[in-house]
């Protein structure tokens, strides 16, 4: 019964949380972009110069340039390849998480939301880095893959699948489940889990 209530309320709350998320735009994405900028420009200064937020899009200035269709170092080319990333591709996890959390009517919900938000920003930063990795693989290709410290193409593809296609929906569920502890819904779920485990 509690679980049914949880799902119905989540669906009812989703238009509200997604509306707030859409209206807030940059606000929810900014910390993840800053974190991603710090991580990438520290770990790969030879690939990424800086990430800048423009509305809900990130403009990633790379250290690569192009001259006559040939990709080369930006200094040699005299220009710089910049890639645009839509932050909403990963930040919608916040709207989903908010709907799940609000539907559970937990104690200290705001505090829990802040904790969850912190984790989501961290996960989003990796999501943005994965999108950039995939875009660099497609746009720059070999010069990017041959740069020091760049993982193989298959690993970049796997990371993209995991961090962009899966984590924005899986991470909110995991966080919500972790924060449910002590709630009536958690007790109901724990009972189901205990009964189900006893069967095994």
């Amino acid at each position: 019964m509690l679980m049914r209530r949880q799902f119905v309320l989540t669906l009812i709350l989703m238009p509200i949380t997604f509306g707030i998320w859409y209206a807030a735009g940059t606000l929810f994405a900014a910390p993840a972009v800053w974190l991603c900028d710090f991580l990438l420009s520290s770990a790969y200064p030879n690939i990424v110069e800086a990430l800048g937020l423009q509305g809900v899009k990130v403009l990633a200035r790379t250290q690569f340039g192009e001259d006559g269709g040939v990709i080369m170092a930006a200094a040699e080319a005299g220009n710089q390849i910049a890639l645009e990333i839509n932050t909403r591709l990963v930040s919608y996890s916040i709207a989903f998480y908010a709907a799940l959390l609000m539907a559970s009517n937990l104690k200290d919900a705001i505090y829990k939301f802040c904790i969850g938000l912190f984790w989501l920003w961290l996960i989003m930063a990796f999501g943005l880095a994965s999108i950039l990795g995939k875009d660099l693989l497609l746009v720059v290709g070999a010069p990017f893959l041959n740069a020091p410290g760049v993982p193989p193409a298959d690993l970049i593809a796997l990371t993209y699948q995991f961090n962009v296609l899966l984590m924005p929906t899986l991470a909110p569920v995991c966080l919500w489940f972790w924060q449910l502890r002590g709630s009536p819904l958690w007790e109901a779920l724990a009972n189901d889990i205990k009964r189900a485990s006893a069967r095994a």
């Binding site: 724990a190 009972n191 189901d192 889990i193 205990k194 009964r195 006893a198 069967r199």
Partner: peptide, 13 residues
């Protein structure tokens, strides 16, 4: 999970 639990109704938490 609920279905698994119902397969073993004798066990209570």
């Amino acid at each position: 999970l609920q279905w698994l639990g119902k397969q073993h109704p004798g066990v209570e938490s």
